[in-house]
Amino acid sequence: MKAGWAYIFLIPWLAVFCVFYLYPLFYGIICSFTNSSLNKMEWIGLDNYKKLIGDYAFWTSLKSTLLYCLICIPLNVFLPLWVANTLHPHGRKMNIASKLLIYLPGVTCAAALVIGWKFVFASNTGLLTQILSRMGFEHISFLDKASTAIPIVSLMVVLCNMGTNLIIYCAAIDSLPETYFEAAEMDGASKRDQFWKITFPLLNATIVYVFITATIGALQIFVFPQLMTAGGPNYTTSTLLMLVYDKAFSNNQFGYASAIGVVLFLITAAVALIQFKVVSKDKIEY
């Protein structure tokens, strides 16, 4: 009787889950073995995956996805931790003001933010380009080559997403028992030692949580590179998700795009699974 009600309460979720998650999941896998476009669908076996192995665009996008991850994940994990630790001894007003200002880009329309950032980094008329050329540097087109575009876009991603993690860290640091720090102070431990020997190990679980969400987020980076560089030149700043979009909606290759999507899904699932295993294995309790 009660179990029946439990399922009734689950119906709304189950409906959404089945129609817009589970079914598309299988449909996507099937699609990746076809040459679908919007109006036709033909089984072609493993051809999409064979094509993938020799596709320059795929490997280039995979490489830049990893580069974005390499820059964004550590910054997303440790920059807000540093900010939270620096903020902690400050008064309430400074704390609230800083949190609000740092969170603001996170609730701002990304398209609007990009307009602001492009003003700084645009190739010919950008503010930074102007300032640098005025100082005598040679003309740099920041967004026209991957070696400068990827760090710049990554920085935008990091600055945009910092708010949530900052608030998480602040709450975690606030919840640490004051007595630990008092004892350390009496023993003559420096602030630096207090951070590395007390705060950092006690925040272990929080850092792991942020690390996991940061990793999954970094694999899905889309809007900033799409609007800043559109993946160019020649896919060197494209992410896998951007390539999926590009193949499907610019080239009408839905089957091939599905195959890339399956690869992205597998990478994300593998990373999530590994992290889940690691977390459940070494749970440090204090």
Binding site: F17, I216, S258, G261, T268
Partner: peptide, 16 residues
Amino acid sequence: TLMMPKQVLLIPNFLV
């Protein structure tokens, strides 16, 4: 589904 954001299902979601 919390760990796997919907974007990874972009194409099939669109086709559905």
